[in-house]
Write a protein that binds this DNA or RNA. Structure first.
Lengths: 120, 120
DNA sequence: TAAAAATACTCCATAGGTATTTTAT
DNA sequence: ATAAAATACCTATGGAGTATTTTTA
């Protein structure tokens, strides 16, 4: 079990599907498909409900358990990395107004955003 | 940052040296040397006090910070893996009396040990 | 000078990619 | 019929090994 794969898993849960997650992660859909399959094999557990049900992949009970654990682990790792970047107490990201670059729309405005907090 | 490397790091801290840690981890000393160096580069921080001081590698302040965080992360990951093995609340390992197999000594006795707890 | 760590290479396992098929709505 | 996931196959990055050379107590 590696952090990279846990991040993949969380992205798939978040985006409710491999394709959407693969875009967010900048990897291809088959890569995700394989990594999640390997993870399921490694843990000996089905994480998602396949087929049948609604398109947006649904978590099994095991999947739900892993989601909670993975979130804790990944968050801890990210905070640790942030600490070494001297970015303790800092959250940053970006906001875009006018749609993403993939839709071929005119970009109206965007901004880099940094929230600095006394404590996290 | 990956769990594998955090485990390497903790082993080096624990064994106070690359060579001893490499034996415990069943990897070679240069592999550890490189992985830890990469980790230091990635974090932009020296983790161990080089040379000068006492042989048993000493942690820097950054190293000490990482040790605490890494322990949390790795323990969480191990508990998660254990949960999927249906081994919640179980600790196992082995005890050997008479020296390890590498010393060419006669093996006097060993035992697989499992501690089962109601809650962990 | 005798350990342990660092360096220099080589190799290979596997993460990741492309192309395609299968599945399910 | 169509959009997403699975499968097959290939490529290549980097993890890990062997051999050797610094280090430093």
């Amino acid at each position: 079990m590696e952090l990279r794969v846990l991040r993949y898993f969380l992205a798939v849960v978040d985006e409710r599907g491999y394709t959407a997650a693969s875009e967010r992660l900048h990897v291809t859909q088959p890569t995700l498909s394989r990594q999640i399959a390997d993870l399921e094999r490694e843990l000996g557990a089905e994480l998602f409900v396949r087929g049948k049900h609604g398109r947006p992949l649904e978590l099994t009970e095991d999947g739900e358990l892993l989601r909670r654990r993975a979130e804790e682990i990944v968050v801890l790792a990210e905070r640790t990395e942030a600490a070494f970047r001297g970015n303790e107490g800092v959250l940053s990201g970006s906001v875009t107004v006018g749609g993403g670059e993939t839709q071929g729309m005119t970009l109206l405005a965007d901004a880099a955003v940094t929230l600095r907090a006394a404590r996290l």
